[in-house]
Design a protein around this nucleic acid. Structure first.
Length: 296
DNA sequence: ACCCAGGACTGAT
DNA sequence: ATCAGTCATGGG
């Protein structure tokens, strides 16, 4: 069943490549022709780049499409609220039109539990394995993301076979917690960010960083600021002159310095340091001398 | 073989 | 509160 053309998004509205390559979502892949294949919730989606713009083929509704790609948000305004510093300006100029997506909470939560100490292509690989193994087949060969109940039922051992490693236990326990109603993801929309963050961190395998990713990428909380190894490095080297900074102070800095949309600034910085040719100031510090493992 | 990856948890100071 | 050790797996 071919996917119907739902709408055409003007190219000026979004930089689709940067958006889908910036590590927010792990359910999209680009074929050799440049066409994107992925999901908007449980609806398969294909996006072709045409002369008119991005042709979005899917059964999802147009409002759902616009919501998913974050189009209603006034990106130009947010960029204007960024502090005027040369690095953030370079990061923003590097990927004009990069947007934050607004994804489904459970899929986002589960995907980021799988993200711990993994590279982005491997997270996407785990995502595909979970879908193929446990997800409902919504059209021939296409599996939506499996529900919490399904992953809870599957068991830790079965999850481990999807290449999850030690994350299998975390994902399984969290799936059980969600299935049991211990944390209600739909209820987090009504909570202030700090409280929603606390709720997410009650889940196994969810600490500050993953909680912030879920808040930013699935709940539209632009006050969430995920600090991973890359962002921590860029903050320390650009804003703290490469000095070692206590985590609490770093947290206080990002909450005050970047203005009303710190999460957006974070996403531009993250994509920039990972994709652009890093300036000399961004080179990795010499690794601290690691003690030898015990010789056999 | 060695190293690292969009971290979190645990048990020690 | 901070801090090393540990947790599996895949790819360079």
């Amino acid at each position: 069943m071919p996917l119907p053309l739902a709408c055409t998004v003007p190219r000026a509205a979004i930089n689709l490549d940067a958006t889908l390559l910036s590590g927010q979502s792990f359910c999209w892949e680009q074929d050799a022709a440049g066409t994107w294949h992925g999901w908007i919730g449980d609806f398969p989606c294909r996006v072709e780049s045409t002369a008119q713009g991005y042709a979005v083929h899917t059964r999802a509704s147009v409002p759902a499409i616009e919501s998913y790609f974050g189009l209603p948000f006034d990106l130009g305004h947010a960029l204007g609220t960024f502090p005027k510093d040369p690095w953030l300006a370079e990061a923003a100029a590097f990927a004009p039109g990069l947007r934050l997506l607004l994804q489904e909470p459970w899929e986002t939560l589960a995907s980021f539990i799988c993200s711990a100490v993994k590279r982005i292509p491997q997270i996407a690989q785990i995502n595909r394995a979970l879908r193929a193994e446990f997800g409902p087949e919504v059209s021939p060969g296409l599996h939506a993301f499996p529900s919490p109940a399904r992953l809870a039922e599957a068991g830790e051992t079965a999850l481990r076979r999807c290449g999850l490693g030690f994350r299998a236990r975390n994902l399984h326990v969290t799936a059980c917690q969600i299935a049991a109603g211990e944390v209600v993801l739909a209820a987090l929309h009504d909570l202030p960010t700090a409280e929603a963050r606390g709720e997410l961190m009650r889940l196994r395998g969810v600490g500050p960083k993953i909680a912030d990713c879920v808040l930013l990428f699935a709940y539209g909380r632009h006050d969430a600021f995920p600090i991973d190894v890359w962002v921590e490095r860029v903050l320390r080297q650009l804003y703290f002159k490469r000095r070692r900074v206590p985590a609490a102070r770093m947290r206080r800095f990002v909450e005050t310095y970047f203005g009303p949309h710190p999460g957006y600034a974070q996403q531009y910085l993250f994509h920039w340091v990972r994709t652009a040719r890093p300036p000399a100031a961004m080179e990795k510090r010499a690794p601290a001398a690691k003690r030898r493992k015990k010789a056999a």
